[in-house]
């Protein structure tokens, strides 16, 4: 298997251009968590020009962590299923969002939007939240604290293991993977 590609945030089009569906990546730098309720609010804030942080070049991690034990940076943290954010994603990509981390396939509209805005969708491995927590070096709540686990958190991560799912060429690892390993009688 090919070695993992090192990527750091914020992302620019040049960083993303070389990434292809199926590439393993280790990501370092600042990323932001946001899931269902935070997305609803972010899209509303984008409409009135009052986003709580500048989305340009940023990466959003669809995640709501477990509480941190005393002395730990974070509790267990891992990706939630991405399709629930599909309705909100094109607006955020228009605001300059460059990367998303989640799990599961995106809608046709989101995939097209990723291609158009030269962004990237990564998958993290669902259910490996104890492992991922070890890659998080700093956590700070930056918006919507009233949402508890769903608040927007600014994370500093080091070598977060990811896999490229949707790239700027419109490839989709989920479709390609199934085609390659399918043995169904048609």
């Amino acid at each position: 298997m090919k070695k993992a590609i090192k990527v750091s945030t914020p992302l620019n089009t040049k960083d993303i251009a070389g990434l292809r569906a199926g590439d393993r990546v280790v990501l370092s730098g600042i990323i932001y968590t946001a899931r269902d309720m935070a997305h609803k609010r972010l899209v509303k804030a984008a409409g009135s020009g009052e986003l709580p942080f500048d989305l340009r070049g940023q990466v959003i991690f669809y995640a709501g962590p477990a509480p941190a034990k005393p002395g730990s940076v974070t509790g267990s943290i891992g990706p939630t299923t991405s399709y629930r954010m599909d309705a909100y994603t094109p607006v955020l990509l228009r605001c300059g969002l460059k990367g998303m981390i989640g799990k599961g396939q995106r809608s046709e509209e989101v995939r097209e939007s990723i291609r158009k805005h030269k962004a990237v969708y990564f998958a993290a491995i669902g259910g490996t939240a104890a492992l991922i927590a070890g890659k998080v070096k700093k956590v700070e709540i930056v918006a919507y604290g009233d949402l508890h686990t769903e608040a927007v958190r600014k994370l500093e991560v080091k070598n977060l293991p990811l896999i490229v799912v949707n790239d700027i060429e419109g490839n989709d690892l989920y479709n390609e993977g199934v085609m390659k390993y399918r043995r169904e009688k048609q």
Binding site: M1, A63, G64, S76, G78, T80, A130, K180
Partner: peptide, 29 residues
């Protein structure tokens, strides 16, 4: 599948960290 084996290996590693540290294996408890 090589990616598949990599994923399964990470899951096993995760589950042993969770048991060792008495911490949630998945954030969605």
């Amino acid at each position: 599948s090589p990616i598949g084996r990599d994923v399964l290996g990470q899951i096993l590693k995760n589950d042993s960290i969770a048991a060792r540290d008495n911490t949630a294996a998945c954030q969605d408890t």
